[in-house]
Simulated scan of single mutants.
Amino acid sequence: MSLLNELRNNGVVKNVGEGSHEELATGSRADHSTRDRVARSVLDHGPSTVADLAARLGLTQAAVRRHLDALVAENIVEPREQRIYGARTRGRPAKVFVLTACGRDAFDQSYDSLAVDALRWIERAAGGGAAGEEAVAAFARHRAETQAGPYREAVEAAAPEDRTEALAKALSADGYAATARSAPTPQQGEQLCQHHCPVAHVAEQYPQLCEAETEIFSRLLGTHVQRLATIAHGDGVCTTFIPRSTTTPSASASTAGRNPA
């Protein structure tokens, strides 16, 4: 998994901390966690030298450099010349590391809170209960339909047998890291897999977002589809089953956005 996607996971971001003295093996999941801590320290403290980061995180400077190299390769941080205020001292100024725009976006989870607050307001303004849930569902359907324009163009331009792949590519262009593959029994259909979901943390509380997306997939592909797993539900990938045979489109509200019981 890309380190950028690791950073975008709220669980990773919320659990990072400073002060651990462990040196972690390169390439392991724990190593990624340490890199998250390095990036978070830059976010919290601003432009930082290798020495600054080593002191704050309890790591050796060699270990910090190794993690910074990986973060630079992922376009999460970038090196800059340190600004010197006042009289310059002898020698070259120390290099500092700052977050890139991409790296900052990876940590910016305030939009999740804003989205949840907005949906909660819609729910309450509609009177709560079933009326509130339907108001949120109406918003989710409107959002999904608005997003679907480019997806529809891509699907309609593809041959029938290539439409799932075309949808996956369109979703990937929108940040969902989607792929299409044959189902375990290929003659039965395909699976559309979304390896990233920008609204997963909001959908944990409001599954109507997943349900509306599933309905859109059904309409775009011209067949009933079944959502088998979702990131919002705790699964590693959002997986949607698309049967080979074309039937009347009708995404089931009982399974859309949720794992089947």
Rank of each mutant, 00 (worst) to 15 (best):
residue 57 L to W: 00
residue 58 G to T: 02
residue 58 G to V: 08
residue 59 L to R: 07
residue 59 L to A: 10
residue 60 T to W: 00
residue 62 A to D: 15
residue 65 R to N: 12
residue 65 R to P: 07
residue 65 R to V: 13
residue 66 R to P: 02
residue 66 R to W: 02
residue 68 L to T: 04
residue 69 D to P: 03
residue 69 D to T: 13
residue 70 A to Y: 11
residue 70 A to M: 11
residue 70 A to N: 08
residue 71 L to M: 11
residue 71 L to Y: 10
residue 72 V to S: 10
residue 72 V to K: 11
residue 73 A to P: 03
residue 77 V to M: 00
residue 77 V to W: 05
residue 77 V to D: 01
residue 78 E to M: 04
residue 78 E to I: 02
residue 80 R to E: 07
residue 81 E to Q: 04
residue 81 E to K: 01
residue 82 Q to V: 07
residue 82 Q to E: 15
residue 82 Q to D: 07
residue 82 Q to M: 13
residue 83 R to T: 12
residue 83 R to V: 14
residue 84 I to E: 15
residue 85 Y to V: 10
residue 86 G to M: 10
residue 87 A to L: 06
residue 87 A to S: 04
residue 88 R to D: 08
residue 88 R to Q: 14
residue 92 R to T: 13
residue 92 R to G: 05
residue 92 R to A: 14
residue 93 P to V: 13
residue 93 P to A: 15
residue 95 K to W: 08
residue 95 K to G: 11
residue 95 K to M: 14
residue 96 V to K: 09
residue 97 F to G: 10
residue 98 V to Q: 11
residue 98 V to F: 02
residue 98 V to W: 03
residue 99 L to A: 07
residue 99 L to V: 08
residue 100 T to P: 09
residue 100 T to Y: 10
residue 101 A to D: 14
residue 102 C to S: 10
residue 103 G to H: 05
residue 105 D to A: 05
residue 106 A to E: 03
residue 106 A to Y: 03
residue 107 F to A: 07
residue 110 S to A: 08
residue 110 S to G: 00
residue 111 Y to E: 11
residue 111 Y to F: 09
residue 112 D to T: 10
residue 112 D to Q: 12
residue 112 D to M: 08
residue 112 D to N: 15
residue 113 S to P: 02
residue 114 L to Q: 13
residue 115 A to S: 13
residue 116 V to C: 05
residue 117 D to P: 02
residue 117 D to T: 11
residue 118 A to P: 07
residue 118 A to K: 15
residue 119 L to A: 09
residue 122 I to K: 14
residue 122 I to W: 12
residue 123 E to P: 02
residue 123 E to D: 10
residue 123 E to V: 00
residue 124 R to E: 15
residue 124 R to C: 02
residue 125 A to E: 15
residue 126 A to I: 05
residue 127 G to S: 07
residue 127 G to F: 02
residue 128 G to I: 00
residue 128 G to E: 12
residue 129 G to L: 05
residue 129 G to R: 01
residue 132 G to M: 06
residue 132 G to N: 03
residue 133 E to C: 07
residue 133 E to M: 06
